[in-house]
Nucleic acid binder design. Structure first.
Lengths: 340, 340
DNA sequence: CATTAGCACGTCATTTAATTAAGTGCTAAT
DNA sequence: ATTAGCACTTAATTAAATGACGTGCTAATG
């Protein structure tokens, strides 16, 4: 069964009204807008409810959008919102700053978005499955300290400092790193540690005296690579300003999920079909009370994901508008850089 | 005026009782323990109250320790608690793992402590004022990307990736980094960016074509050095399990302070007199409802700070016991390494 | 046949009052 | 110095009363 025009409008009105006022919407409040009596509205509401687009909290409460209702709204009813002049102003100062590196530009934009929306924003660099080992370097710092530098083909770099184990020399570390560079380049970064154990360890165990300690250094540097770096989360506390979080247990649940990096894993796991994907409630696989809006960027080969987490009762039109704006500006950054 | 033995015991009992039960403690509940009537307890309580060690929430409520009372307790009444076998077990598996680098050992220990106490733990590397520039390196990644590596004398290392601006060559970057290494070594890391502007920029502006872009890269790398890295916070969400945080506004206040890194700044600002310092409530300069316990380590020149944040009603004896245990074990790590 | 007015009903939220529990300060006796 | 006893205060809990909101259904209407 398909919705007629009035029903669509009604659903749209209910969703937007609820997003704005956080209160279940009753039939009477919609009379003027639809130029009919509350009874008529009630009849139409009954239809929408029977189709699963709206729900009641209890027998005599107003209606609230269901997940299906939100989904219908974002798929068919919503129009991305034009940014306000104020918002444009804030974002444009970042895009205009030509001295910023791309990743900084994006991070700063998302911080702004979190600030103006009161939702949580996330920027994820390309994830470890897509990153291939490009280069390992050993940089001596002083007589007994070195830094191991690991770079991937996506340009992600991490370093880790090590105290040289007794009876080892930097020379041997460098020798080992050369070997790694010869044999393991191109390996997905999350598999490198394993190959190190099975392919490199046997070799160095024959050639190098203190191979165990040296192996451990590289294992450590490579194994710990992906762990949490290259991720920017902003506005976790802001999200708590949303009226849905007026319950301490709810807050505790959410905050500890955040702290466990569950969100990041879930976001990485979702594959995207469109330029902007919206996962509402249970669809998010993260928490039934939130919506995750996710978008992917690829500017001159530098890839990453940006996402916004807010209540299901999110200002979808505004968020989508903001993300589209960001995407457009990133695209034009790319074009500019090709011009030069 | 000085407290007599019974008054000290009474204060100790009140503090520990309140820490344990979170409820104001009344005179009757202490009769058996002090082998006297509730009236006597009340008289003594009145004395403690007039001296400012305990307070009432309202005219007929039990007593609660004041900040002054907590302070007296930790200074004169408390004995650090022996760890339970369980706690020793958890921590010892970390200290026994000889493959861990020092900073990882400490971080993991503090994570454990946060888990078993439900307080928030923090590990701070040596702060930027104490870090002096030791070395800047430029590592080419591919034809148009480089990594700038900045090391300090404390062994802190950070990297930042840059896209090469058009019309610049790696050679020029390296030349500039050599210059920085000649002229700015030993500068406090938080002053380097400034000196870069006034001492290096004028020079390269004459020798290098695209000096502006190159200057920006180094400025960026050096300016952003201290920002938040080298810090590990764990258990923010755990802290919310404490019964004092049964109020959403309280939670919001605390979480947004956390997110702004206010805590880290405050902890860095506090100078320590003893091996373990305790800042209660307002003394913390952070939040009147929390206590910060701070301790400093210096193992073979690698320095840092560890701290625990909990409610004023913190299990002081346990926390101090845990931190002492960690300090002792770190000391013996140091001795071991000297033996070798 | 879609729309509407009208009414009985259900649920929640808020207010008010009453009661109970916990604990104090003070006084007078020991 | 200690204690028993009593009057008093406050907070917390419970119960009842009320009002606000909004629904579903029925019967009348154009």
């Amino acid at each position: 069964m398909i919705l007629d025009e009035r029903q669509k409008n009604l659903l749209k009105e209910i969703v937007e009204n609820y997003i704005k006022n956080v209160k279940p919407v009753g039939s009477k409040s919609l009379c003027k807008k639809f130029k009919c009596s509350s009874a008529t509205i009630r009849n139409e509401m009954a239809v929408l409810e029977s189709l699963g687009y709206i729900e009641k909290n209890h027998i005599s409460s107003g209606r609230v959008p269901s997940e299906k209702g939100y989904k219908y709204y974002v798929d068919y009813l919503m129009k991305p919102k034009e940014l306000t002049g104020e918002d444009v102003l804030k974002l444009q100062t970042i895009f205009d700053n030509k001295q910023l590196q791309l990743s900084d530009t994006i991070t700063k934009c998302m911080e702004i978005i979190s600030d103006i929306t009161n939702y949580t924003s996330i920027v994820l660099g390309s994830n470890s499955r897509e990153n291939l080992l490009k280069q390992v370097s050993i940089i001596p710092i002083d007589e007994n300290k070195v830094v191991a530098l690991v770079c991937t083909n996506k340009g992600v770099v991490q370093n880790k400092q090590f105290v040289l184990p007794p009876n080892t020399e930097v020379k041997e570390l460098v020798k080992t790193s050369d070997m790694i560079n010869k044999m393991l380049i191109g390996t997905p970064i999350n598999e490198v540690a394993e190959r190190l154990e099975f392919e490199i360890k046997p070799i160095i165990s024959q050639r190098i005296e203190q191979y165990e300690a040296i192996y451990n250094i590289f294992y450590d540097a490579l194994h710990g690579f992906n762990k949490g770096s290259n991720v920017h989360v902003r506005g976790q506390a802001k999200l708590l300003n949303q009226p849905e979080y007026d319950d301490t247990n709810e807050i505790r649940r959410l905050m500890s999920k955040f702290e466990n990096n569950e969100l990041i894993r879930k976001i990485e796991a979702k594959d995207e079909s469109d330029s902007i994907n919206i996962y509402i409630g249970d669809e998010s696989d993260f928490d039934s009370n939130v919506t995750i809006v996710k978008s992917h960027y690829n500017i001159n080969g530098e890839e990453g994901t940006i996402a916004i987490i807010g209540p299901k009762r999110m200002e979808y039109d505004r968020v989508v508008g903001l993300l589209k704006y960001i995407n457009e500006n990133l695209d034009s950054l790319e074009k500019e850089s090709k011009h030069e």
